[in-house]
Structures are given as C-alpha cells and as structure tokens.
Design a protein around this nucleic acid. Structure first.
Length: 296
DNA sequence: AACTCCGCCAACCGCATACAA
DNA sequence: TTTGTATGCGGTTGGCGGAGT
C-alpha cells in the first residue's frame, strides 16, 4: 500500500527552513504544545507538512537541545551503545540528553566511523579489523563446521569470556553504573538480554553515574575537530534565535519574555531572527546583556 | 579569481508500527 | 478484521561551504 509523500497533496514548501518559519513553529509549539503534528502546519500558518514540522522541532527548535561539539564522554558512550544496539539511533539518543538521533547518526557517519577505522576497528562489528580478516579466512577454511555462536542482531559480540572481560573493561571506561554492568552481565548470562534492556534502564533512570551532559561545556578542547565544530556552531546558531536562553517554557508568558529579551538585545521586532546568532552573541558587548537576559 | 572536489549536515523519503474508525 | 491516518525511525540525498589547485 504505497503512500504519497506528505508534500504531494498540496503545494507545500520543502528544503531549508527560513527564520520566519522557525519563528512561527516555535511560537505555536510554545503556546499550544505538541499535539497532532498533522494539524500543526495549518494552525501555525506554515506551508509545510506535519512531518517536516515535527522533524524541525525535534532536530533544531527544541529548547532542550544541546549545541556544540560532542564531548569525549559522549563519543565513548555512542561507540559503546552502538556496539550494543547497532544503528538504533533513536535508542542511542535516549542516553545522550540534548542530542538527537539525526545528530548522532550524522556524527557517527561523518566522524566516529572513520575514527574507528583509523584505529583498526571495524565500525560495524567493533572488532579489530585484523582479527576479522583472520576470522574470515578461518571461516573459508572451516566453512560449515564453524562453532561460533550466532548473536542476535544488536547484541555485543560476547562469544568468549575473554571478549566479555574486554567488554566490561570498556564499559567501565565510560563510567557505567556498576549495577547496570552487573545486571547486564547477568542478563547476558541468562540469555535475557533484549532490545528493551537499555530502555528499561533509561526509563528507570539507572544511568545515575553517567556524566550530566546537560550543562555541557562548549569550551572543551577538541583540537582535531575544531574546524567542523566552528562551522557547526555557525550553521546551527547563526541563522536562528538562541532558545536556550530561556529554556523550555510552554507558557505564553515565557515565550513573550523571550521575545522581549530578543528585542532588548537587538532593538528590532522578533520577526527578524537572521542576526540573532552565536556570532554576534559571542561578542563581549553582548555577553553582559545575555547574562542579564538569562536572569529573566 | 575561478573552478573542482569533498565533507558535513539538514532535511527528505520510504517503511514499519500504532491506533482509531 | 480491514482500512486509513499519524507518528517514529533509519537510510539516503542534496546543498552549502571550506580546501585545494
């Protein structure tokens, strides 16, 4: 049963979002909240499909999004979770507050994958590439007599006890909760591991030793990726307003405060967001204003 | 300066699933 | 139970901008 693209029914806009569209969507969501996405574009006065609006909100406009580079801890966590979960970006994203599945996926494909390959690790299996080559040669020799245990998709490779120790060591490196590690080990031992295991932990907030990434410090040194970092900051922050100033607030009053703050800073109507970016905000003259605004 | 190449990332597309009528 | 619609997810793509020539 094929389904038409949501843009086909009407002549709807596609492509990059303009600051005006962002403003409309942001104002609508902060005022009325996220309800039925399919009705959002109509009610917000946008020539977009609901799907596009949802994506824009989740990946860009959401006030609780973290901006900037991935920290080393986040990087380690993504690698570890990818080893355990595979390409389940949405599930991985639940363990990284303020990060979206799209962002993590892009980061993985553009950076982490290459990094692992550079380190001689296969990004799909997370095994050393040399070991994989030896194994594949062995497979060719042994063919059907292979005794390897087939792992369910998404499970880390735990076919030997040595591997399990390596795994535990690696997981400890990224500061997993010891309770989580022991229960994970137990679940694996009893073949009880399933894709909901991590969800369970997330749901019950058992990742209590995971570093708090919400207040991630963008000043951290990321020398090897600073070029893309600066570009990312520009891309993300220059075009639109800086929602994080006032955090997520659904009440209209807060939205108004935000608009007032914007006007205070720039002396213009909130309709024009094109100049409300990091570039200008990073200037010292604005820093003091920002501090004052954050007090609102 | 002009052009090409290439990496990054925002956004789209199609599929799967959930849910309501 | 069937059908239509909404939402969520992962793979893919196209445009932008920086680097190199």
């Amino acid at each position: 049963m094929g389904r038409n693209s949501c843009n086909v029914k009407q002549k709807l806009r596609k492509g990059l979002w303009s600051p005006e569209e962002d403003e409309k969507l942001y104002n609508y969501i902060t005022r009325f909240g996220v309800g039925c996405w399919s009705s959002v574009p109509k009610l917000a006065g946008l020539q977009r499909c609901g799907k596009s609006c949802r994506l824009r909100w989740i990946n860009y406009l959401r006030p609780d999004l973290k901006r900037g580079m991935f920290s080393q801890q986040e990087e380690d966590l993504i690698i570890t979770l990818h080893e355990a979960l595979g390409n389940r970006w949405a599930q991985i994203a639940t363990q990284l507050p303020g990060r979206t599945d799209n962002e993590i996926k892009n980061f993985w494909n553009s950076s982490l994958k290459k990094k692992l390959i550079k380190q001689g690790i296969d990004p799909n299996s997370h095994k050393p590439i040399i070991q994989m080559q030896v194994k594949s040669e062995k497979d060719i020799c042994l063919h059907s007599s292979s005794v390897d245990i087939v792992q369910p998709k998404g499970l880390p490779c735990l076919s030997t006890s040595i591997r399990m120790e390596e795994q535990a060591y690696h997981w400890n490196q990224v500061h997993y909760d010891p309770l989580f590690l022991s229960e994970f080990q137990e679940s694996v031992d009893h073949n009880e591991y399933n894709s909901n295991f991590l969800s369970h932990y997330q749901h019950n907030q058992i990742f209590n030793t995971m570093p708090n990434l919400t207040n991630f410090d963008c000043q951290t040194d990321y020398s090897d990726t600073c070029t893309s970092a600066s570009r990312m900051n520009e891309n993300k922050l220059e075009s639109v307003f800086h929602f994080q100033l006032c955090g997520i607030e659904t009440e209209e009053r807060k939205a108004n405060l935000w608009q007032e703050g914007h006007q205070q800073l720039h002396g213009q109507s909130s309709g024009d967001f094109s100049n409300f970016g990091l570039t200008s905000m990073s200037q010292e003259s604005n820093a003091a204003n920002l501090d004052a605004f954050q007090q609102i």
